[in-house]
């Protein structure tokens, strides 16, 4: 087994008295799809927030490709290769889909202010490059015809896919999907299942996803991390988690003896 892409070592995130994450340790192996499950308020999204740099953890070490990323600002972490989507869609609504993606390329653009003012060839070349890159992503996700549409005008399902497209535009190694199936019906969910696997294979990514829908989680995840009250309950392949006493208890309540 190769070195993990991302790892949490005894990470805690406290807000005043609230322990959103409490001494959590786990690691994610390269190329895997890992699901995080847990009851409401278990700290799933907080895992994403500390990993992507929205919050700086109170204690512990978070590593990405072996490097410590605890105290880095979000855009630096994204620039290194961690991209994410949001539970409640946060697109730049008044801008076109293509511009949403182009804004996400900015860590990979080298030209400077002088190039802009003098309108140099270098700038035009780079702009063309990122435009083709973004259009490739859009066509891969079947959104090419929506490139010029304002993001806010899209249907809910399309907005969800644009969120994934925008995260891909950051050229990540690790993709964090925060409840990608929220509000989808079973048929749409099956399509999403297939899409996530396809994205992983095409862009050779590692994917970490937070999800409530067991259909999705059990269907595609290589590994599942179950947390409750900010602590790890279990981690293992879906079959293990499904039969784990603790997990069942957390979801269904204590067994009546």
């Amino acid at each position: 087994m190769s070195a993990p892409v991302a790892s949490f070592d005894n990470v805690s995130m406290h807000f005043g008295g609230l322990k959103a994450i409490d001494g959590l340790s786990f690691s994610v192996a390269k190329g895997k799809i890992v699901g995080i499950i847990g009851p409401n308020g278990a700290g799933k999204t907080t895992v994403f927030n500390v990993l992507s740099g929205v919050y700086t953890p109170t204690a512990g070490e978070i590593r990405f490709n072996g490097q410590l990323i605890n105290a880095l600002r979000p855009h630096v972490i994204t620039g290194r290769g961690v991209a994410r989507t949001f539970q409640n869609i946060r697109l730049f609504e008044r801008q076109s889909v293509l511009d949403n993606l182009r804004a996400a390329c900015c860590a990979h653009i080298k030209y400077g202010i002088l190039d802009v003012m003098l309108s140099t060839g270098r700038m035009h070349r780079e702009e063309r490059e990122i435009e083709t890159g973004c259009m490739d992503i859009l066509s891969f996700l079947g959104l090419a015809d929506k490139a010029g549409v304002k993001a806010g005008a899209l249907s809910y399902g399309d907005q969800r896919r644009v969120e994934i497209a925008r995260a891909l535009a950051c050229k990540p190694e690790l993709l964090l999907l925060d409840e990608p199936a929220a509000g989808m019906n079973p048929a749409e969910m099956d399509l999403l299942n297939e899409l996530i696997v396809r994205v992983r294979d095409h862009y050779t990514l590692t994917i970490l996803l937070v999800e409530h829908q067991m259909r999705l989680v059990m269907g595609i995840c290589d590994e599942i991390l179950a947390i409750n009250f900010g602590r790890k309950m279990a981690m293992g392949v879906p079959a293990e988690i499904r039969s784990n006493e603790q997990v069942l208890e957390a979801y269904l309540g204590k067994k009546v003896r």
């Binding site: 740099g53 979000p74 855009h75 994204t78 946060r90 730049f92 804004a103 030209y111």
Partner: peptide, 30 residues
Amino acid sequence: MVNRFVKSKYGRNMMAIREDQIASELVSVD
């Protein structure tokens, strides 16, 4: 100059920040 500026990555960054500062940080806008 202003026209070039707002159509460049700088302009896109500005508008992304206007729409949603946190989201723009998380898609690598400094």
